[in-house]
Design a protein around this nucleic acid. Structure first.
Lengths: 145, 145
DNA sequence: TTTATTTGAGATAAATTACTCCGAAATAGT
DNA sequence: ACTATTTCGGAGTAATTTATCTCAAATAAA
């Protein structure tokens, strides 16, 4: 079950890593994050650039530069990150890809699929990066292979 | 939310179309199915060949040939079709793609994700192609754009 | 002011997925 | 036997996703 693209997954891993740090004020270099999480530096750079453009991170160039949260991580839900890379209609699309599939003109799995994605969305939309980040740190949950 | 590959989706649509027919005994040509569902003929051919190899369909060449169910459609669950094209570990893989992610060495979304995919699996494993096919026919649910 | 370091941005390449094409093999009907 | 039709099987192409490379722009520190 590959529900998310590599971009989304790498973004979440990087953000949870950032959110789990003690010092949230200072910039952390993308190089460092990429090494820590074993993600391609250049690819991760593109992804974090996107998060900067979307107002989730802010960045600084030059020595001692890097990225940090723009908004506090307790103001960013996991859902928001998903929407950045998967699009805003992620939790409303038809499983069969039929255009115009809706309650009025449903496909055979419409109701079932609606339940599944609604449950998933409601589970993801209240949990913030801060909550998940601190839990990740405290329980030493895995972020890399 | 693109949970399944094009192959899986096309397979399901074709199977539900077959399962919704009155006459389940006769062969139906792939050409006919592809036109009815507006799916590429050659691509659908490959997909239905796979279902034939996996013992879900059986086929006949030549004039009046085509495909039909090998096992009765009330003996085939939707889950089985998904496993053919997505692999058998579809409902057990880590959302973050971390190798070895498990209850013992969990990633940050392990528990949440486990719930989601387990709920999804249990919803899909009892529903058969027959049930869904007849419902599709009776309620005139959509199978094509 | 120079240098080393770091993100920004866009081109390019590799890998995967989606789709197409072609000829061979089978088979029903004439 | 011949012909038209249909699946089979494999190779080839296109599109998308994932990853890499290069250089410019910014900036902190010497």
């Amino acid at each position: 079950m590959k529900a998310f693209s590599a971009e989304t997954v790498y973004a979440l891993r990087a953000l949870l890593y950032l959110a789990g740090r003690r010092d949230g004020e200072s910039y952390l270099s993308i190089r460092k994050i990429s090494e820590e999480l074993e993600i391609s530096f250049h690819f991760l750079t593109k992804i974090l650039q996107m998060l900067t453009q979307k107002g989730i991170l802010t960045s600084s160039r030059g020595p001692a530069g890097g990225v940090r949260f723009f908004r506090a991580p307790d103001k960013v839900s996991v859902i928001e990150v998903i929407h950045v890379f998967e699009g805003n209609d992620y939790f409303t699309t038809c499983m069969m890809g039929l255009p115009g599939c809706s309650d009025k003109a449903p496909c055979p799995v419409h109701d079932l699929w609606k339940e599944v994605r609604t449950a998933m969305k409601s589970r993801l939309e209240d949990v913030t990066l801060a909550e998940m980040g601190t839990r990740t740190m405290l329980e030493r949950l895995r972020l890399s292979p």
